[in-house]
């Protein structure tokens, strides 16, 4: 283990105009401007942006990254495979966030730094599970860093979801569930495939991303693609991204029962402000307990936080005697804050 001083004097990651920069490898992690070498944690728009020359990612994430960014040059790596870049050894370790999502582990032989990207510690049949890594400095996300965010069990959420779905059909309404197009929608489809024979009708934006999941052999429930001027097949649930609310594809159905699956649905006021009849607490990010567990598991002597409630988390860690600071990044501003 290194002292605080060496991490300060000799940082493996610094924030620059372009993004999280690794000086010893001359590479950027999830850069928000075009750079020479981009090490990508996952394909969400706030982490994977187009325009860089050389991209690196976890092999299972290549399909989604290609669909989203269309990189000219992409190197893919297996989980834990050590890659030498300049003076650093770099490896990708599953983060459990969405298909192909990874934490990036950096080591110069003296210190180990980990950039978690986005992660969750709850089970998800659509991606590999999160693996804790020991390190000196942990750069963690903090999207849901408040103790009110504690995720209910998936069994309960799926039971509630199916009940609401049946109830909507009973009332002759078309159930519509808003969820993020990359990750959340496919997670729900995979959960349904595990539990039921139910079928969904998906928005084209979601359909576009399915080949990447099928390539990786993720079992999904049967689906139809939503088209204009055509009714959803009887009994199906419509899955659509939140941006589709109020749009033509959705409003063509007269009687709707609209719900949303997101960690933000934990708070009643948030759901009611969106005029949703139902909210399902379902997030691809770590909840409060998950964040604290990860920090503890890492054994890090220093924690840096990105995304969301960074101040709450770092202030709390400081009061608990863990050295922590906020990193100002552009993460969590685009599509994936649920």
């Amino acid at each position: 283990m290194v002292t605080k001083n060496s991490a300060d004097r000799d940082p493996l990651v610094v924030v620059t105009r372009e993004g999280l920069y690794c000086p010893k490898a001359d590479a950027y992690i999830d850069p928000w401007r075009p750079v020479e070498t981009a090490l990508i944690t996952h394909a969400h728009a706030d982490h994977a942006r187009p325009g860089s020359r050389q991209y690196h990612c976890l092999a299972s994430g290549a399909g989604l990254l290609t669909e989203r960014v269309r990189p000219d040059s992409l190197s893919t790596h297996d989980a834990h495979e050590p890659i030498t870049m300049g003076a650093l050894t770099v490896s990708w370790v599953p983060a459990g966030h969405v298909l192909g999502s990874a934490q990036i582990r950096l080591s110069d032989g003296e210190q180990v730094w980990v950039v978690t990207g986005d992660y969750k510690r709850t089970a998800d049949p659509s991606c590999d599970p999160f693996e804790p890594i020991q390190c000196d400095v942990l750069i963690t996300e903090a999207t849901f860093a408040l103790p009110i965010y504690r995720w209910p069990s998936m069994d309960q959420v799926m039971d509630d979801l199916c009940q609401w779905w049946d109830h909507a059909l009973l009332k002759n309404r078309q159930p519509v569930l808003y969820c993020y197009a990359l990750g959340k929608a496919q997670r729900i489809m995979a959960e349904l495939a595990l539990r039921t024979t139910r079928e969904v009708c998906i928005h084209p934006t979601i359909a576009q991303l399915l080949p990447a999941y099928l390539d990786q052999g993720i079992p999904l429930c049967p689906w139809h693609v939503l088209t204009s001027g055509q009714k959803a097949p009887p009994g199906t649930l419509i899955l659509a991204p939140p941006g589709a609310q109020g749009g033509r594809l959705i409003t063509q159905f007269r009687a709707l029962d609209e719900a949303m699956a997101s960690g933000w649905m934990q708070i009643r006021g948030v759901r009611r402000r969106r005029a949703l009849t139902q909210g399902f607490v379902l997030s691809d990010h770590a909840d409060w307990d998950g964040l604290l567990q990860t920090i503890k598991d890492s054994g890090a002597s220093r924690v840096l936080a990105t995304h969301g409630e960074t101040r709450v988390l770092t202030d709390y860690l400081n009061r608990m005697g863990v050295e922590a600071a906020r990193l100002s990044t552009s993460f969590g501003q685009d599509e994936d804050t649920a």
């Binding site: 408040l146 708070i267 009643r268």
Partner: peptide, 18 residues
């Protein structure tokens, strides 16, 4: 931790719900 409670309360806006 009182500060943590205040942050949670501010996010929810309702004592019973928090």
């Amino acid at each position: 931790d009182e500060t943590l409670f205040e942050a949670a309360y501010a996010a929810v806006g309702d004592l019973a719900e928090t």
